[in-house]
Design a protein around this nucleic acid. Sequence first.
DNA 1: CCGGATCCGATTCGATACTG
DNA 2: CAGTATCGAATCGGATCCGG
Lengths: 124, 124
Amino acid sequence: MTNPAWDVLVATCPSRTSLAKIANKWTAMIVIALNDGPLRFGALRETVDGISGKVLTETLRDLERDGILTRTMYNEMPPRVEYELTALGQTLQGPLAALGRWAEEHIELVLRAREDYDQRPDRS
Amino acid sequence: MTNPAWDVLVATCPSRTSLAKIANKWTAMIVIALNDGPLRFGALRETVDGISGKVLTETLRDLERDGILTRTMYNEMPPRVEYELTALGQTLQGPLAALGRWAEEHIELVLRAREDYDQRPDRS
DNA sequence: CCGGATCCGATTCGATACTG
DNA sequence: CAGTATCGAATCGGATCCGG
């Protein structure tokens, strides 16, 4: 099923274009946020704290194009649009959630490493 | 050990700065490339196909600062510099390798999803 | 010749203002 | 409410140059 010739380390390999999109902080946070079920555009913007509307729109479109999530628009007033992970997107949830957890669980060690690094006298 | 208040979805949380660095294609590829042991700068540049010297240098410095890898310089001629994952970096190897594998294993589905999306008539 | 610093164009980012 | 448009600012990234 999987072509063993695919290798993200090869510049021209299509799998790298996919890695480039999923190895992105906004993608990670959006997929993490959608773990508990579909969310509206506004709810996503609140949950993924600090994201701008423009970047949220762009990232959501890219993810929809790649089959990671679906966009469902309801013809209501006021308009309502919901985003939800596809089956494919749910297979991505694990790896990205693991990344998020790693960041939360190891931030203390990272902060300590930064202090050590910044206080090194040898900045030759 | 882990502060439950840390949440990568909160803009001001330090863990997000860490997530922003590890959720990056170059970081992912470098950590993946270092899985089999230390590599020299030049070997890394070949292995992570397509990366420029500048970006490689910057990313390696960031990762060194965060305690993900070590940089060892040998006073030889010609110069030799080796990069190697730390114990902390090895805990990151799993999650990032999983991301790379996801990209390779699901690229076919992603490519098909892109075709479908691009052929949709309703681009209202 | 290797590691990496510099320069500078290209891309991305994000705040604001506006539309259906 | 859910976007789109526009436009500086910031970041990324590649070609090129430099020190040992």
